[in-house]
Amino acid sequence: MLSKLFRHEARQKSEHSKRLYAQFEILYTLVDFLAAAFFIVGSVFFFYESLMIAGTWFFLFGSFLFAAKPTIRLVREVKLYRLGDDEDLAARLDR
């Protein structure tokens, strides 16, 4: 299975796979943008002692968003893989 993940062909197999790929790319970009925004706000907050605790929370949330990015990519690739290999997956489930 791992050799078939992250293959470009899976992204273009059908209209459904193209749409799924595009949706995950939008989600990935949104998470990337939000993580960057959280880090920028956290950085600005660190200039003010009264906002340092809030800044720390922004850094923490930004870190979680950055950690979500590889998860989003992996989920996308597994879904694309499953779209292209339904028969193979069904055969493995019957064993």
Rank of each mutant, 00 (worst) to 15 (best):
M1P: 09
L2H: 11
L2V: 07
L2I: 02
K4I: 05
F6E: 00
R7G: 01
R7V: 03
E9W: 12
A10G: 04
A10N: 03
A10V: 04
R11L: 08
K13Y: 06
K13W: 04
S14T: 15
E15S: 07
L20M: 13
L20H: 01
F24I: 02
F24C: 02
I26P: 00
L27A: 14
L27D: 07
Y28D: 07
T29H: 09
T29M: 12
T29K: 14
T29R: 15
L30F: 14
D32Q: 12
A36M: 11
F39T: 08
V41I: 15
V44S: 05
F46C: 07
E49Y: 08
S50K: 14
S50A: 15
L51M: 13
L51G: 03
M52E: 03
A54M: 13
T56K: 08
F59M: 11
G62Q: 06
S63I: 08
F64Q: 01
A67C: 02
A68N: 13
A68C: 15
K69D: 02
P70I: 06
P70E: 07
T71M: 05
I72M: 10
I72N: 10
R73H: 03
R73N: 08
L74E: 10
L74F: 12
V75A: 15
R76N: 02
R76W: 00
E77I: 13
V78Q: 05
V78E: 07
V78F: 01
K79G: 05
Y81H: 14
R82W: 10
G84W: 08
D85H: 06
D86H: 12
E87R: 01
E87D: 04
E87A: 03
R92P: 02
L93H: 07
L93V: 08
D94W: 05
D94C: 06
R95H: 13
R95S: 11
R95L: 09
